[in-house]
Computed example of a mutant assay.
Amino acid sequence: MRLQQTLSVTMMTIVLLHLITGVWTLPAPSSVTVDSVDMRHTLTWTPLQAPCNTTILYSVQYQGEFELMLLNGSWRDVHHCQQVPHTHCDVTADLGSDADYNLHVRARCGSQLSAWSELSRPFNRRDILTVPNMTVTVVGGGLHLSFLKLPSNAVASVTVWKKGHELQASFYTVPAEQKVLHVSDLQAGAEYCVTAQTVLNTQLHSGSTDAHCVSITGTAAGPDAAWKKTTTVTGTVIIMAGLLFAVFWSIAYCRPDQCQTYIRKQQLPQSLCFLQQHVQGVLLGPQEEEEERCEQVHVVQNVYVKH
């Protein structure tokens, strides 16, 4: 009886080993990597060279921190990459957070399956979307920020705050084609800090740069302060030149007869005109003709008669 039980267990073990050996007759895919271009993540692998009477099909699964920590290390299918004939799979939509992801792929030929082949190390999209290369300088009482090599279709998200007032920070967005940002109306003598991160499609973002803190010198000035100053100086020069031209022209071209039409002498009051005639009559005589024309003055002497 015991001999029969032993033989049964042995036969079952042989059958199971045979089945397991038959399942893993295909080699596992090799060179499994993730290629990222403009934050589109594509899993790629080398096609199998094993003989197969039908088309070799591939399936892809992923495992994030949620599956690893809360779902007991389970794996989820990448739905549009199940039983596909090509050797690549777009996994952008499945890698939806800044976390570490494991990915693996296996091949199928008819009823034969290969073992799963995993990435050499977990993939994190933050390692691909790098922090922006930012330069911060103080210009005209404000901050001048410049960015280099932002990915196409990406923006730089900038945060500026006065040191000690982090809760009152200001936020700016710099498109990749703009590359520069001027922040004006800052308090002179205060210290301001700046951080930035690369953002793509409002959902994918890199880590933040280290905080750049600088002191604002001089007076606060807007981005158009330079042209305002230039315009003021130019206007002043033009006005002064016009005034000087008018003075020199009047000296050079204004003849006495013409100038008199513009510059008239004011008629003297009657009292002063009478006094002037009397003085000229005494000193110059009746032959002198006065130049000033005065109105005729009639002097009436009051005679008081004593009764």
Rank of each mutant, 00 (worst) to 15 (best):
S152C: 08
D185F: 10
V139D: 02
L145F: 04
A169I: 08
T159S: 04
S157I: 12
P175E: 05
L186I: 11
V160W: 02
L186K: 05
P175V: 11
T173A: 03
L181E: 01
S157K: 13
L148F: 05
K162A: 12
V160L: 11
L186V: 12
Q178V: 15
V160I: 13
H165T: 11
V139M: 06
A156V: 14
G189Q: 08
V155E: 05
H144P: 04
V155F: 00
E177I: 14
S146E: 06
H144Q: 15
H144A: 15
S157L: 14
Y172C: 02
T173E: 10
A188G: 15
V174Q: 00
E177D: 11
H165P: 12
T159D: 04
W161H: 09
V174L: 05
S170M: 14
E166S: 13
K179T: 15
L167N: 11
S152D: 10
S184R: 06
L143H: 03
P151D: 03
S184T: 08
Q187A: 15
A188S: 15
Q168C: 15
A154K: 00
W161N: 00
V158K: 04
G189I: 08
Q178M: 03
G189Y: 07
P151G: 02
A154T: 08
L186N: 06
W161L: 14
K179F: 01
N153D: 14
V183C: 05
H165V: 13
V139P: 00
A169V: 00
H182A: 10
G141T: 02
Q168W: 07
N153C: 04
H182C: 07
W161E: 06
H165S: 15
V160M: 06
P175G: 08
A156D: 06
S157T: 07
Q168K: 13
V139W: 05
P175W: 11
K162Y: 10
G164D: 06
F147A: 05
L186W: 09
Q168D: 14
S152G: 09
S157F: 15
L150V: 07
